[in-house]
Computed example of a mutant assay.
Amino acid sequence: MNSLSIFTHTGLELFLREITATDIPQIMTLERSAHTHPWRQSSFEDCLKGRQKCWLAESKNLLVGYVVVTHGGGDAELLNISVAPQFQRKGIGQCLLAHAVNCVKGKADMLFLEVRVSNRKAIELYSKEGFFEVGQRKNYYPTVNGHEDALLMAMQLDPI
């Protein structure tokens, strides 16, 4: 199994490794704590069977985040990225995003993502890391009171 150790800009040591089926219950706990409308467990299970790259980040043996990215046909898509609420704003999301970019470099020209228009923290991170707005999807995400738009963002990937 692939794994690596990296440090966030705040000095927090992270261990990144590929997600396995035994990680899914713990991932679902984090997913539910971070999102009002979490992914279904079957979505994570399907990702482990496909061409998606699924990585988790641990610090001091605690799951602190994960990222799921895929590629095909010259493009890549960031499917899911989450950081446990108590560990947000410590550079973990930035590290996971950088790792996702590295996973698809050389396999795609562009990396796309969708993000809730209300998720200002994520939009700020993506913009800082080189993503730019390419459009919106109306009523894409469910909310407690209906739906909200998704902001479509993209990043040009440099060849390896």
Rank of each mutant, 00 (worst) to 15 (best):
H35N: 13
N2W: 13
H35G: 01
K60Y: 05
K49L: 15
P25L: 08
V83M: 08
P25V: 04
A98L: 11
E45R: 10
L4D: 03
R116W: 05
R40D: 14
A100V: 05
L14P: 06
N119P: 12
T143H: 05
E18Y: 04
D109G: 15
A34I: 01
G72C: 08
N2H: 09
E13S: 13
I6N: 04
L96I: 02
F132N: 10
W55T: 05
D109M: 15
D149G: 13
A76D: 08
T29R: 04
L56E: 01
G146Q: 08
N119V: 02
L12Y: 07
G93I: 01
T8D: 11
F7V: 08
C47S: 15
A34T: 02
D149S: 14
F15D: 10
L151R: 13
M153K: 06
L4V: 07
F87E: 07
L12I: 07
F44E: 07
E114P: 09
S118H: 10
C47T: 04
L79E: 09
S127F: 00
K60V: 03
H71A: 14
Q86L: 08
D23I: 01
N119Q: 10
D23S: 08
T8I: 06
Q41M: 14
R137W: 06
G135D: 14
G91A: 11
K138T: 14
L56Y: 01
E18S: 12
C47L: 09
G11I: 01
L111W: 02
I6T: 12
A21T: 13
S118Q: 12
V69L: 06
Y140Q: 08
V144G: 08
N119H: 13
G73C: 09
M28Q: 07
H37E: 11
A57R: 00
V69E: 06
I27V: 14
N119F: 07
D149Q: 11
E129L: 04
H147G: 07
I24F: 04
K105D: 11
K53M: 05
N102P: 03
V64N: 09
Q94P: 03
S42F: 03
G130P: 03
G72Q: 06
K90E: 12
I81F: 02
T36C: 03
F87I: 00
E58H: 00
Q86G: 06
G91M: 05
Q88I: 01
V64L: 06
I19Y: 03
A84N: 06
N80Q: 11
E124P: 00
S3I: 02
